[in-house]
Each structure stands twice: as structure tokens, then as C-alpha cells.
Measured scan of single mutants.
Amino acid sequence: MAAGGDHGSPDSYRSPLASRYASPEMCFVFSDRYKFRTWRQLWLWLAEAEQTLGLPITDEQIQEMKSNLENIDFKMAAEEEKRLRHDVMAHVHTFGHCCPKAAGIIHLGATSCYVGDNTDLIILRNALDLLLPKLARVISRLADFAKERASLPTLGFTHFQPAQLTTVGKRCCLWIQDLCMDLQNLKRVRDDLRFRGVKGTTGTQASFLQLFEGDDHKVEQLDKMVTEKAGFKRAFIITGQTYTRKVDIEVLSVLASLGASVHKICTDIRLLANLKEMEEPFEKQQIGSSAMPYKRNPMRSERCCSLARHLMTLVMDPLQTASVQWFERTLDDSANRRICLAEAFLTADTILNTLQNISEGLVVYPKVIERRIRQELPFMATENIIMAMVKAGGSRQDCHEKIRVLSQQAASVVKQEGGDNDLIERIQVDAYFSPIHSQLDHLLDPSSFTGRASQQVQRFLEEEVYPLLKPYESVMKVKAELCL
């Protein structure tokens, strides 16, 4: 049975990233139509530049190519590739079939990587351009969430054990800070992308030097003109047959890092959902379990974690691919890159769409948070109580021993009897502590235990987050809708 299948058929496997999760716009960027249309555009740009620099290419040939950029006979191309065992030459023939007058000058002087690699770089750039505003929107939604809850005390956790208090907004800023680093890295790697350009079979530009009869300047002009037509500021000066596969490492490393950030955020949300302090959106008709109707599973956060793990592992592909590119190139890269580049971007696209949807509907339960604080705060307040007693004339050592005994009794009630923490009640009825009984409410005010959390939130948002989001103001209103 021949390899390949009808990918629109229910009898043929289709990647869930495309069929179930990723956005239509990201799927289109990695589609065959987008790819092969870009090949034709690159052939047109090459012909236009070659004509401008004096090669015998007519206006009629150029116009014929322009008129057929979208006229792609995919069936013919597939048949040609089956016959020739070469995808680029299959599309040269297919393009030439609908451009008979231009057929002889299509791909003039070029090698397969002229269309293959340059198209990949265009796709990487455009895919990054799709991700950047999506990530900015996630940051914006979380920034709104953090600002609104900047002063809401909550129990902090280290080692997932109760620690000092923080605020809900401050905790959210930990998430935002990681995503801001990801946004900066995505922008950097996007701006650092260079075009492969017009380089020939081993990167020496020998074929173009021959076409222009040894004119170095025209060869350099050709490279520059096509690079500018493709919208790049610069091209690699040095290439082998391909652009260095280190570029793929750079791009997928940034995406993998984004995956790590999203995994951490969504894990926190899942843990908070278990504590009943916070939940992701839950639709009115949504079913959490087929057997347990009360369940409210954090399905979206779980999906993000599941896909983020996949995204983090994909960076190993370009690392290994770059390491086995012998001399000017081997074909070890080809099949692998067809999979890992598309999957990385479709996965990143999915987790950003999902995280935006989550961040637009996060639900906080202040009463649950308050109750958990009441359970733990008495123990945390013991040092403040000791200091207040010393100020009232008591002995630190005597007070410490009193607190120690009462704390152990209260802990026994919590752990052995399943009761509430009654340390404060014990202190309130103990005559030894009568000098500070009137101060206990103040000493137990949760806001006095959150330090500068709310001020940190305000400063972080104003100095770091809002300036970073400013270039994306025009796209901030787009909502994230999930079908599944």
C-alpha cells in the first residue's frame, strides 16, 4: 500500500493539533497551500530580480507567473513527485505547466533550498508574528487579574506546605514575570531571523556568478533584492546548502521555554482548584465526569500541561538535527523538520489560546482563602504575639514557653481530632496574655502579614508589564474561544 493518505478522510490519521486544537490561522501558515504558494512567490521574486539585473526574462513571463501564483494543481504535483521522487522539481514542473512561456526560467540558477529553506524562514517569521500578540493578550488578562487582587491576602506555599502570606495578585505576578520573559525572547528570536537568500547549491553562489558572467556586484544585488522582497532586513552571508540548523534550535528553545512557563502556571491553577481557592472557567453544560456528576475538573489547565510537556520535548529534535548536518548538509534534517517545526508552533498556539481562555474567566473564592488563612495564621502570628507581650512588660522566655504549650495543644486538636485551630481562643482565655487581649485582632490582621506584596504588584505592572504590552494595544480586544 502506498504511503500517505487522504487526510480529510475519517479513515486516515490526522494530527489532533490540526484537527482538534490549533487555530485556523496557525494551521494555514503550515498548510501545503501556504507552503507551495510561497515557493511560487519566491520563484517570481527571483525572476523579477534577475530581470532587473539584466537576464533575458520578459515582462510577459513575469506576468504569467504572477497570474498563476494561486493556480496550484495539487493532484498534478503529487503525481509528479511520485514520478520524480523530488518535491521541488515536482512543483517546478507543475508551475511550468500553467506558465508555459515562463517554464524555462522558473528556478533559474537556484537549488531546492532556495524555495525550501527560504519558505521555512518566512513561515517561522509569520508563525512567530501570530504567537506574539496571543502571548501579549494572556499577559494582559493576567495583569488585569493581578491588579484587581493585588491586596487580597492568601496563604503562600513553599514545598506545598503553608508559608508566609502573600497576595493573590502577587502570586499571579510570578506567572506574568515568566511570560514577559517569554514574550521578550519570542520577539528577540523573531527579529534575529535572517533570510537564507540566493546562495546556490553549497552556499557559494557559483551558479549565479556564472549567470551574471562573473559580476560579483550583481550577485550581491540579486541576494539583497530577493531578501528585501521577502520582507527581511538581512540575509546570511555564510550558508551551506541550507541555512544553519542552529536557527531551528533557537526558535524551538524559546517555544519550549514558553511551554515550561505555561505548565507551571496551569499546575498552580490545578492545585488551587483542589484547594477550592480558584477555578478555571466551567461552562453551564460542561460535564466533569461521566460517573461523578459533582466533579469540576480543571480540564483546560490539564490540557495545557499535557501539550506543554510535548512542546518542551520537541527542542531535542533540532538539537540532534543540527549535530548531524555533515559538511554542507545531509538530508537527516528533512523529514524531522517537516514534523517538529509545525508541531512546535501548533502546540504553542494551542496552549496560548487555551491559557487566554482560562485567564479571561478565572474565578476566585475569597471566603475559602480566608478560612485557610484562619487555619494557619495563628501559628504564624506567634512571633508577633511574643513581641507584643514583651512590649507590655512580659518575659520573652516565659511567653515563648506559654505559646509553645498552647500551640501544641491547638495542633493536637487540628491533627488528632480534625478540629479547627483554636490557638487564639486559648490565648484569649489565658490570664497571662490579658495585657494584649485587646491587640489580638490587630495582630491577626492578614494584611499585616503580606509585606509589600501589593506595592510590588503595582510597581511591576507599571514599570515592566504595561510598557512591554504597549506595541500590542491594537490587538488586545480579541477574545479566545474554545470549541473543545
Score class of each variant (00 low, 15 high):
His400Ile: 03
Ser207Ala: 12
Glu376Val: 06
Met278Lys: 06
Glu302Met: 08
Leu307Met: 14
Trp175Ile: 06
Ser412Phe: 14
Leu311Asp: 01
Gln456Pro: 05
Cys98Ile: 12
Arg149Ile: 05
Cys98Asn: 13
Ile249Val: 09
Cys266Asn: 06
Pro318Cys: 08
Leu131Ala: 14
Gln41Ile: 10
Asp73Tyr: 08
Ser438Glu: 07
Pro10Glu: 15
Phe232Arg: 01
Ala78Asp: 13
Ile238Trp: 00
Gln184Pro: 10
Asp87Gly: 00
Ile237Ala: 06
Glu401Ser: 12
Ser448Phe: 13
Asp6Lys: 14
Leu314Gln: 13
Val92Thr: 11
Pro378Arg: 02
Val254Ser: 10
Asn421Leu: 07
Phe460Asp: 02
Gly54Pro: 01
Val324Gly: 08
Leu128Ala: 09
Glu50Val: 05
Gly214Thr: 12
Asp32Ala: 14
Lys35Glu: 07
Met387Trp: 00
Met312Val: 08
Ser140Glu: 14
Ile57Phe: 06
Ser67His: 10
Pro16Lys: 12
Glu473Leu: 14
Ile238Ser: 06
Glu343Pro: 10
Lys284Leu: 12
Asp441Ala: 09
Cys483Pro: 15
His437Trp: 11
Asp420Asn: 01
Val457Glu: 03
Pro133Gln: 11
His263Ser: 10
Met380Asn: 05
Phe95Pro: 00
Glu213Ser: 12
Val324Glu: 08
Trp326Thr: 05
His263Ile: 10
Asp317His: 04
Asp317Phe: 01
Ala453Trp: 03
Leu377His: 05
Gly394Asp: 12
Leu108Asn: 06
Ser151Phe: 07
Leu142Ala: 04
Gly109His: 05
Leu319Pro: 01
Lys284Gln: 14
Arg149Asp: 04
Ala47Asp: 02
Tyr21Asp: 00
Met278Ala: 06
Asp223Ala: 06
Gln210Asn: 14
Thr350Ala: 14
Arg141Val: 15
Ile176Gln: 04
Lys284Glu: 10
Gln177His: 15
Val262His: 02
Pro318Ala: 08
Leu130Asn: 15
Thr38Gln: 07
Ser207Tyr: 05
Val368Trp: 02
Val465Cys: 12
Leu307Glu: 03
Leu121Gly: 08
Ser67Phe: 11
Asp87His: 02
Gln164Ile: 10
Lys295Ala: 00
Phe345Val: 10
Gly203Val: 01
Val324Ile: 09
Pro24Tyr: 10
Ser434Val: 07
Met389Glu: 05
His107Leu: 03
Ala235Ile: 07
Ala388Asp: 04
Tyr294Gln: 03
Val364Thr: 07
Ser15Leu: 14
Gly109Ile: 01
Val429Trp: 12
Gly5Ser: 11
Ile72Trp: 14
Tyr472Val: 11
Ala260Lys: 01
Lys295Cys: 04
Asp117Cys: 09
Glu81Met: 01
Gln325Val: 12
Lys218Pro: 11
Tyr13Lys: 09
Gly451Asp: 00
Arg171Val: 02
Gly418Gln: 05
Ile287Gly: 01
Cys98Leu: 13
Ser412Arg: 13
Glu25Phe: 02
Asn185Phe: 05
Ser253Phe: 10
Asp333Ala: 06
Thr354Pro: 02
Gly259Thr: 05
Lys470Val: 10
Arg190Pro: 02
Leu121Phe: 05
Lys199Trp: 03
Arg396Asp: 01
Lys367Met: 08
Ala291Asp: 01
Phe145Gln: 07
Ile369Leu: 08
Thr158His: 00
Gln356Ser: 13
Glu64Tyr: 07
Cys305Ser: 11
Leu423Asp: 07
Lys218Gln: 10
Gln325Glu: 03
Ala381Cys: 06
His97Asp: 14
Pro162Leu: 06
Lys187Gly: 12
Ala308Glu: 03
Gly288Asn: 01
Cys340Ile: 09
Ser334Phe: 02
Leu186His: 11
Gln241Phe: 04
Ser434Trp: 09
Gly418Arg: 06
Asp349Leu: 04
His217Val: 13
Tyr365Asp: 04
Gln241Ser: 02
Asp87Glu: 11
Pro100Ala: 09
Gly96Cys: 06
Glu302Pro: 00
Val324Met: 10
Leu252Gln: 04
Thr158Gly: 00
Lys276Ser: 05
Ala127Ser: 11
Leu193Val: 08
Gln320Ser: 08
Ile287Ala: 07
Ser474Val: 15
Ala146Ser: 10
Gly231Asn: 09
Thr52Gln: 13
Gly156Thr: 03
Ser253Arg: 06
Cys173Leu: 03
Thr119His: 03
Glu473Gly: 11
Asp441Tyr: 07
Ser253His: 14
Gln456Val: 03
Phe433Thr: 07
Glu60Trp: 11
Leu222Asn: 01
Phe195His: 04
Lys246Met: 02
Val138Asn: 10
Ile339Pro: 01
His107Arg: 01
Ala146His: 00
Leu165Arg: 04
Ile123Thr: 13
Phe236Pro: 06
Leu124Asp: 09
Arg337Phe: 03
Phe30Gln: 08
Leu124Phe: 14
Lys170Met: 06
Ala143Gly: 13
Thr347Ala: 13
Leu17Gln: 11
Thr313Ser: 11
Gly394Cys: 13
Tyr365Met: 10
Gly393Ser: 07
Leu346Cys: 09
Met65Lys: 04
Glu279Arg: 01
Glu280His: 01
Ser306Glu: 04
Leu307Val: 14
Trp175Cys: 01
Leu193Thr: 09
Leu42Glu: 02
Ala3Ser: 14
Ser448Val: 13
Met292Glu: 04
His159Gly: 01
Glu81Gln: 09
Thr239Ser: 13
Asp191Val: 10
Thr244Tyr: 06
Ile427Thr: 08
Leu124Ser: 11
Leu124Glu: 11
Leu275Val: 08
Ala230Gly: 03
Gly5Glu: 14
Ala256Cys: 06
Trp326Arg: 03
His91Glu: 09
Phe95Gly: 00
Phe36Arg: 08
Leu314His: 10
Ala90Thr: 14
Phe30Ser: 02
Ala206Gln: 15
Ser31Phe: 01
Val324Asn: 12
Arg404Glu: 03
Ile339Arg: 03
Met181Cys: 13
Phe30Leu: 14
Gly418Trp: 05
Glu79Gln: 11
Ile72Glu: 09
Leu355Glu: 01
Phe379Arg: 04
Leu165Lys: 01
Leu469Trp: 06
Ser23Thr: 04
Gly116Thr: 15
